[in-house]
Simulated scan of single mutants.
Amino acid sequence: MIELDDIDRQLIASLARNARQSASALGKRYGLSQPATWRRIKRLEEAGVLGDQRLRLDAQMLGFGVTVFLGIKLARKAHVSLEDFERAVAAIPEVQTVEHILGLYDYRLRVVARDLPDFERVLRRRIMTLPGAGEVEANVLLSEERLAGPL
């Protein structure tokens, strides 16, 4: 585990809110030079504290009006490997996240679709045909609030 000081924690919090900030702007905010800030950020990246920077797309604005969380229990009789299931589900473009979980279901998927008929098509033709797919529970997302802050 990497040792973090107060400035590292402040940089992490600032970058979690907006990863597009320049090292120069962050340095001014925290009393560091641009090179010193850049070195700190690079050190945090190399240590794995800071991961990939990604754009957060608005699914609604892109025509995906429905988000569904699926709980999937693998069929025990199918003898499918977890890797085979994960590889197959990751190839479905409507599946945004795949989480292997402990509990009632084996996997939780976040699936986007244009509307409910489109979701039904994805469910019937893609998800229910996955190797080892057993019980499925669907929960339609009504609204989403994002908590501010890193963790």
Rank of each mutant, 00 (worst) to 15 (best):
L55H: 12
R56K: 11
V80T: 06
W38I: 05
L62T: 00
E46M: 07
R29T: 12
D84H: 03
E137I: 12
G149S: 05
H100R: 15
R54E: 05
Q96I: 10
L123R: 00
A23Y: 08
D5A: 07
V89G: 01
R20S: 07
L4T: 08
G27K: 03
D6Q: 08
G63Q: 01
A25Q: 08
L44V: 03
D58T: 08
T97F: 11
A88P: 09
V136Q: 02
V89S: 00
G27F: 03
L57C: 06
I12D: 07
R40F: 01
I101F: 10
V95F: 01
L11A: 00
M61I: 07
Q96P: 05
V95Y: 01
A113D: 03
V80K: 00
E135V: 13
L116K: 09
L11F: 03
R9D: 15
I127F: 05
P35H: 09
I92E: 00
L55A: 13
K42V: 13
A75P: 03
T37S: 01
G63M: 02
L11E: 02
R54S: 05
L147P: 11
V66G: 11
A59P: 15
H100V: 13
R108L: 11
I12C: 04
L55W: 12
E120V: 13
R126A: 05
G65C: 06
Y107M: 07
G63P: 10
E99V: 11
G31P: 15
A75K: 10
D106F: 04
I101V: 14
T67R: 11
L142Q: 13
V98E: 05
S14C: 11
P93H: 04
T67L: 13
G103S: 05
D118F: 04
E137Q: 15
P117G: 04
A88H: 08
Q10I: 12
T37G: 02
E99A: 14
R39Q: 08
A13I: 10
L11G: 00
T37E: 01
L15W: 03
D118A: 15
Q10E: 14
L141H: 09
G31V: 07
M128C: 12
P35S: 06
D115I: 01
E94G: 07
L109I: 12
K28S: 08
W38D: 09
R56F: 04
R39D: 06
L44Q: 02
R9A: 13
N139K: 09
L50T: 01
A47V: 10
H79D: 06
F64C: 02
P117F: 06
R146L: 13
L62Y: 00
R125M: 15
R40H: 02
K28D: 10
A47H: 09
E45Y: 15
A138E: 13
Q53G: 15
V66I: 11
D6E: 10
Q21R: 10
P131R: 01
V80D: 01
I127W: 05
L104F: 12
K73C: 13
M128S: 09
A91K: 12
A13M: 13
K73G: 12
R9N: 15
P93Q: 04
L26T: 04
H100W: 10
I7P: 03
T37H: 04
T129Q: 10
G134I: 07
Q96R: 14
A47I: 08
K28C: 05
V140S: 07
F119M: 04
R39N: 04
S22H: 08
L116R: 10
I41P: 00
